[in-house]
Design a protein around this nucleic acid. Sequence first.
DNA 1: TAGTGGTCTAGACCACAAA
DNA 2: TTGTGGTCTAGACCACTAA
Lengths: 258, 258
Amino acid sequence: MKKEVVMDGENRGSPSPQLSEQRASPLYLQLYHLLRREIVNGNWQPGDQLPSEHQLVDRYQVSRATVRQAMQELLADGMIERKRGRGSFVATPSLEQNLVRIVSFTEDMQRRGMEPQTRLIAAGLMPATERMARKLDVQAGEKLVRLERLRLADAQPMSVEVSCLVYRYCGGILDHDFTRNSLREALWQQFDIRLSRAEQTIHAIAAEEEMAELLAIEPGAPLLYIERVSYSDYDVPVEYLRLYHRGDRYSLYNDLRG
Amino acid sequence: MKKEVVMDGENRGSPSPQLSEQRASPLYLQLYHLLRREIVNGNWQPGDQLPSEHQLVDRYQVSRATVRQAMQELLADGMIERKRGRGSFVATPSLEQNLVRIVSFTEDMQRRGMEPQTRLIAAGLMPATERMARKLDVQAGEKLVRLERLRLADAQPMSVEVSCLVYRYCGGILDHDFTRNSLREALWQQFDIRLSRAEQTIHAIAAEEEMAELLAIEPGAPLLYIERVSYSDYDVPVEYLRLYHRGDRYSLYNDLRG
DNA sequence: TAGTGGTCTAGACCACAAA
DNA sequence: TTGTGGTCTAGACCACTAA
């Protein structure tokens, strides 16, 4: 860098044309989000080469270490691959990612080479049960939005998703067409709520009669059942989601360290 | 650092008393493994404070960035927590770790606050089936060690583990007492094989009659079924493992990024 | 106030891949 | 030979915690 300005916390020497000088968040995180957006929005496709570290240093006027830290985050997300001597490339999305990132059903099915489709089973309001209230950190009885959708892959039932959202945060969300648009998208665009992280548990359960009928399987057939609580930027629980995946059609994949 | 020696790749100025000067592996990885060992061996207990970055810099004569890189790896493993202004601490093992690291049944159960126990169902040799051969990258019919164990928690059946190992790599392993000692331990001590990573898939299946009997459940009851291939340091597949967990007693947990 | 981890810079040498 | 990412150093300022 050509800056001779001493860093003083207020102004570290006009960081870049595009990274905020207000230091709302660390430079490496700003750069991370900026690059991530290019990938998520599809501006950069799987296999595409990212700008080199050197180019990013030049373009955003930050040090190489800062660029590398941003890249490291993308790597941890599984969004890029890096090859010494060659460069950094947008990763081909893998099945593993649905145990690392929050992935939409549509995206998930496309990776599996299947045609996704959605049917709305039910949409309405309900009071929070004890269990839901605990998970969402609200009072029992608090008004929730309940959304039940059947997901199909290649025209065959794959999963049932039951979403429960805190009404207080996203009242008008029921106006949305959930068979066409993603719930996450709606939360973001209409209510400025970004789901920044989630916690989930994974179980094997037997299908109850009602669920079996929806999924076109025998009652008692095994389901991969996932319970997930998603949190906003401010670490407030926003959604309590239950996923019922057909055991004969759906599985998860991941890597372990030794 | 007080070195005025210029780094030249052969000798970067006698790095430290305890980190190899031969640069067999990067300094930060050596330090990572060194610290990791202290934790895995139980020399440092959950909640214990690790030496500060500054102390590690002094002790091992490396730069702070190198220390931080080692710490970063431990953090990614979920083995430590770091608190600004306080220090780094050995993490209390969480249930999440069995989706991040290879965790022994014993360790897993202790985290769940249960008493682990093992019964040997079968141990012997068998020829590799087509499927196994593919997974282990050997010829179909190649001699494998097969090990079947029933795992109990609080004296109740929890899981069945079926291990298949390439006989060529670890012939004499059957002499081991697998109800008392871990398979990983034996591979390491007797054959110098370290399982450095693994790939797994997670399914929900219905218990077959035989499995149901072992696990003391009804035939058809849901199982969390995991298929795992573990690789050695040299990225050679060593073990093909099948885990059958009782759906009513066992579940997995993990965090997602937004 | 002293000590911790978090962020950032500027610059170096390295191994690796491709032309 | 050039350009890439991988490793490493030395030193700086910051925010946070606890005494």
